[in-house]
Design a protein around this nucleic acid. Structure first.
Length: 745
DNA sequence: CACGTGACTTAGGATCGGGTCC
DNA sequence: GGACCCGATCCTAAGTCACGTG
């Protein structure tokens, strides 16, 4: 009874397949796991150590079958399995349905607009990532990176004598197109660089801003438990957290309610605890209404009051929002400490609804120069003040839900040395991958034939990471987070194999929840060897066994490190994202006018977002706003045809009057042109928006696309301002500074 | 090597605020 | 001048990956 049959029957409704499992007994098997791995390895060695190097695939398979037979490697999964089964059963009763409305339409399957205009063949192609079918992509055209002197000059690892150039990112930031700067300014963003791993020499800041203290409710706002009940401030505060979320579907979820109630009780006085025993009987509506009224009131404030608040915020920003780091005044990203509230995990998070504690000064670690440190609020103490210049954070504390550390760090635009330079290095690494990706691809294809299971698994996983831009997929502690996976942690239940599907051979269907519980759904034809390997990996496994049972991210990354210095799984995402953008741009940008070019750019960007599976929930008002736009378009059409008619008649009129150079005709002509232009813009906008319905461009734009590619779009007459807004230009100041139009990723 | 942990990047949703439309 | 809409910004969760420890 092989696992893959029992699980391929599809009665499990697609929603429930994704419900996460709260694996409570996560520790059960750890020891076994290690042992088993070790055993396997020995077995592998003794079995294959003296094999002939070129045995046939089949031979291997037979041998490897043996390896699987005893199932030893997979033992450790069994416990989880049971857990998961339980969970599945649970999810049947429909408690937890499709937690992510948005995640469920695979981007490339999404119904495409009819006009072929929408998807150029190239785009289509890249969407499906059918790279392997045409080898061309494995042989990228030679690109003279060498030409890019600047890039060279500034090899990440190369030491740069800290040459003091100008500082202040101000000029770039202030929105004015400041184009070319004088050479001496050119590399201002890369001045001091420390070779000893220090991140700074001097750091001074004002410390964090704490959440405002709790303000008890006015006495006319009442909480009811059967009848009115006055809560102690502590439990009242927690009650308000729940009340504020009453409209959110979170509060209907069992886990959320359970976690909340449990934590709430901890805050209650003993009398309260004795009385309040059932969350269902709690009536929060007055509290909820009160907060709604408050936010209404805030919206309805007078201009002056709003201005006052704005000014106050600005003052806070100026006072706390900046630090001095090595002679620069740098913007801090999050100087406000996270306020207390209820934890909102994403997806089916086992901890959703838990109380996120208020952070006090004594929870806070301050990091700064030892010259002087920020004062804690009167009457309080910091947990610690340290002076660690090997890290970039200014403030940290430990959060009580997962026990992880939270930080206050700098803004992404912050110079340069910290963020900008890191960013730049990231893309330089990706460009180095570009130079050796052929070699790596050749190698992993070779490794598909390896005698060793672990090598085959590694090679197939790498193929997916490369071809599909999957994330690495670290192991996660079960029961602590939502059940999501990445490449190395994909389970048998997440893929289906089709020897033939829709006229294509060797199709693999992926269906799993990735980071943030966003669904990854994709059907891809793969090479035969990959397919056969997958079959092999799945043999004798249960649906919830790891597909790559002899692989994890650290093994994979260690291997990658050997292939290229600095190479890790995520570099493939960066590389493939950036290279895709560059290719798509070349293919798409033939249009004459800027509007069309921007659309092309967005489409290229979209191709990347689809590759990286960056989805968003379709905006709530999407349908309506599309309709509005359509109305506008129709109106514009009417206007246009009117204008055309008028033009015609005035032409005829002019003819009659033998008025060769009629003013009216000229004006009418202008009007028609203007309307045509406007109509075109609207239509492009509609196209763009429709295509973007559930795709988020921001993430790839901000994190995966080498900004220099975008900057270089000026060669097609696309100004940076049309691609990056002000914030983005700040973040990418380094790229705007250095990239020329001939920049090649 | 497994494991825990710390630092930092990547991520989508919520909220804000300024412009537009009626 | 109020409602609405949308991009920008804020928020903080959730990844990746390196490193230290035993």
């Amino acid at each position: 009874m092989s696992g893959d049959h029992s699980h391929s029957e599809d009665q499990v409704d697609s929603g429930s397949r994704f419900n996460s499992h709260k694996h409570k007994d996560k520790y059960k098997d750890k020891e076994h796991k290690h042992k088993d791995h070790k055993k396997d390895k020995e077995r592998e060695k003794s079995k294959h150590g003296n094999d002939h190097k070129e045995s046939s695939d089949k031979k291997h398979r037979d041998k490897e079958k043996l390896k699987h037979k005893d199932g030893s490697t997979d033992k450790y999964k069994d416990k989880h399995k049971e857990k998961r089964k339980e969970e599945k059963m649970k999810s049947f009763d429909g408690k937890v349905k499709k937690e992510k409305e948005n995640g469920f339409a695979p981007p490339h399957v999404k119904s495409e607009p009819e006009e072929n205009f929408y998807h150029s063949p190239q785009l289509e192609k890249s969407l499906k990532r059918e790279r392997d079918d045409d080898n061309s992509e494995f042989k990228p055209k030679k690109i003279k990176i060498e030409n890019d002197k600047k890039a060279k000059k500034r090899k990440p690892n190369e030491d740069i004598k800290s040459k003091k150039t100008k500082n202040k990112k101000g000029e770039v930031a202030d929105g004015k197109k400041k184009a070319k700067k004088e050479p001496e300014e050119k590399w201002k963003w890369e001045e001091e660089r420390y070779t000893d791993g220090s991140k700074w020499k001097f750091l001074e800041h004002k410390g964090p801003v704490f959440a405002p203290p709790y303000e008890p409710l006015p006495s006319n706002v009442k909480f009811y438990y059967d009848k009115h009940m006055k809560l102690s401030p502590e439990s009242e505060e927690v009650a308000t957290f729940f009340a504020k979320m009453l409209d959110h579907e979170y509060t209907t979820k069992d886990i959320f309610r359970k976690n909340f109630f449990k934590d709430w009780k901890k805050e209650m006085s003993s009398e309260e605890k004795a009385k309040i025993t059932d969350l269902k009987k709690c009536n929060f509506t007055e509290l909820s209404d009160y907060f709604k009224a408050q936010s209404e009131a805030r919206k309805a404030m007078t201009k002056e009051d709003k201005l006052k608040i704005k000014e106050e915020n600005e003052r806070m920003l100026q006072e706390y929002g900046f630090c001095i780091m090595d002679n620069h005044r740098e913007r801090i990203a999050n100087f406000r400490i996270e306020p207390p509230g209820l934890f909102r995990g994403r997806g089916d998070h086992p901890k959703m609804g838990m109380l996120k504690r208020r952070i006090r000064p004594k929870d806070i670690i301050i990091n700064c120069s030892d010259s002087k440190h920020p004062e804690p609020p009167p009457g309080t103490k910091w947990k610690e003040v340290r002076h660690d210049n090997k890290v970039t954070w200014l403030v940290s504390w430990t959060e009580n839900i997962q026990g992880s550390i939270k930080y206050i760090m700098l803004n992404p635009s912050s110079r340069i040395k910290l963020q900008g330079e890191k960013d730049w290095q990231k893309y330089e690494t990706a460009r180095r991958l570009k130079k050796c990706v052929d070699r790596i691809r050749t190698q992993y294809r070779e490794d598909w034939k390896s005698k060793e299971m672990r090598i085959r698994q590694r090679a197939v996983a790498l193929y997916f990471i490369d071809k599909l831009a999957l994330r690495a997929g670290n192991e996660k502690e079960e029961g602590e987070t939502a059940d999501t996976v990445g490449c190395c942690s994909v389970r048998v239940e997440h893929i289906k194999l089709y020897p033939e599907n829709d006229g294509q051979e060797f199709v693999v269907e992926f269906d799993f929840l990735g980071k943030d519980s966003i669904r990854y759904y994709n059907k891809v034809p793969v090479e035969k060897r990959v397919f056969k390997n997958l079959q092999l990996f799945m043999e004798n496994k249960e649906p919830d066994d790891d597909l790559f049972d002899r692989l994890n991210t650290s093994v994979l990354n260690k291997h990658l490190q050997e292939l290229m210095d600095g190479l890790t799984a995520k570099v493939f995402r960066t590389y493939n994202a950036s290279i895709t953008l560059q290719q798509q741009l070349k293919a798409l940008t033939n249009d004459e006018n800027v509007t069309a070019k921007i659309l092309s750019y967005n489409r290229a960007n979209r191709a990347v977002a689809i590759l990286c599976n960056h989805q968003r929930a379709p905006p709530k008002t999407f349908e309506k706003s599309m309709q509005n736009l359509q109305t506008k378009i129709d109106a514009k059409r009417d206007q246009l045809s009117d204008a055309k008619r008028e033009l015609k008649s005035s032409k005829a009129d002019a003819k009659v009057r033998r008025d060769e150079r009629s003013k009216t005709v000229e004006t009418k002509k202008k009007a028609v042109e203007r309307l045509e232009d406007q109509l075109m813009k609207l239509e492009v906008q509609a196209t763009d928006r429709e295509e973007n319905k559930q795709i988020a461009l921001g993430t790839s734009k901000l994190n995966y696309l080498d900004p220099r590619i975008s900057v270089a779009c000026k060669k097609w007459g696309i100004p940076v301002e049309k691609i990056y807004n002000k914030t983005q230009r700040e973040k990418f100041a380094w790229a705007i500074d250095m990239a020329e139009e001939d920049y090649e990723f």
